[in-house]
Simulated assay, not measured.
Amino acid sequence: MKYKSVFDIIGPVMVGPSSSHTAGAARIGRVARKLFGKQPTKAEITFYGSFAKTYKGHGSDVATVAGILDFDTDDLRLKDSLQIAKDLGMEIEIRTSELLTEHPNTSRICLSEGDATVEVVGVSIGGGKIEIIEINGFDFQLSFHAPTLMVLHRDRFGMIAAVAKVLTAHQINVGLMEVSRLVKGADALMAIEVDSPLSAEVLEEIRQIPHIKEVSLLSFS
């Protein structure tokens, strides 16, 4: 991960105590919430490595739940997030695992409501920065620092070109694109970082492309 300025190293405006264990944890939780698209009734959180050892002292648990509640890192409600979630009727399960992960500050979050679920694995890499490395089993390396278009589709020839054609027609510049699939010919997930938010019209055009199943735009600005 490249830092754009000295402020990325110092860390974000946040409720402390730690940019890695608090702000980063909150941002991973908020990405999971945005991907789920609504407030879940249940959140299962698993901490690994350093997160597992220090999450209580550094507030990684309350920070993650705050993110799931869609609170930003500087929201003063962060410290009360566990009680707020309980008052809203959200069931919270927090576990730790001794499984070795590539990065010590790793968390797995599963959000659900009825049959709807989303599972996200993220790492906090320092200074409040995060990377999402797995979404519903699809492997990625995403920061979500820019508006990110998520497109779930059947794995068919020409899908990338079809989505790119719509973006080109609307003069949308692409900063990064990743595509992940579990099995050849089954479902695939496309993630596209763009330089500006997309209008509802653009999103609807993409939804109308054959073999497209779901389209969403994640923006944290």
Rank of each mutant, 00 (worst) to 15 (best):
A164Q: 00
A63T: 12
G128S: 12
G11I: 13
R27L: 09
T73L: 02
L99M: 12
G24P: 15
H211K: 05
D87T: 08
I84T: 04
D72V: 15
A146R: 09
I206P: 06
K42Y: 04
D80P: 06
L176N: 04
S19K: 11
I209H: 10
P12L: 05
I133W: 00
I160D: 00
I209N: 08
G127L: 15
S5Q: 15
E178K: 08
K56R: 05
Q208R: 09
E193H: 01
L35W: 07
N105D: 14
G127Y: 12
V120S: 11
D115M: 03
A25D: 12
V123A: 05
N105Y: 14
Q141G: 08
K53W: 00
F71R: 02
L182N: 15
A164V: 01
G114W: 14
I92T: 08
R95K: 14
F71L: 13
A188R: 10
V174Q: 01
V163T: 02
V15T: 08
A23R: 09
V174C: 01
T106Y: 12
S5G: 12
K213Q: 07
L100G: 06
G175W: 07
R33G: 12
T168N: 04
I45M: 08
V202N: 10
V202M: 02
K56A: 01
G16A: 13
S97D: 02
I192V: 00
V166L: 00
S18K: 04
S219D: 13
S180C: 03
V123P: 09
I45F: 07
L182M: 14
T54Q: 01
Q171S: 01
H153G: 01
K129M: 10
A161E: 00
M90W: 04
F157M: 07
K42S: 11
S19F: 13
H170N: 11
H170G: 00
G37C: 06
G59E: 07
E205Y: 05
F144K: 12
S180W: 04
R154D: 05
A85E: 10
L203G: 05
R207E: 08
I109Y: 11
G89D: 13
G137S: 14
R207A: 02
E91I: 09
V120N: 06
G16D: 03
V166M: 00
S81Q: 05
E119F: 13
K42T: 14
E201F: 11
F7A: 11
T148M: 01
V194P: 02
G11S: 12
L69H: 05
F47Y: 08
E131V: 13
R95H: 08
L218W: 06
S124C: 03
G16V: 12
Y3T: 02
I132Q: 10
L176H: 10
S18N: 09
G122W: 13
Q39M: 13
G175N: 15
G122R: 15
V13K: 14
H145K: 11
A66Y: 07
Q171D: 15
D72Q: 08
L142Q: 10
M1T: 15
A63D: 07
G122C: 09
S60N: 05
H58E: 10
G89W: 07
L35G: 10
S81E: 04
Y55Q: 01
V194I: 06
I109E: 07
F140K: 15
F140M: 15
Q39N: 08
T46Y: 04
K79N: 04
D80V: 03
V163Q: 00
V31F: 11
I212K: 02
I84E: 06
E102C: 05
D139K: 15
S60M: 11
G59Y: 04
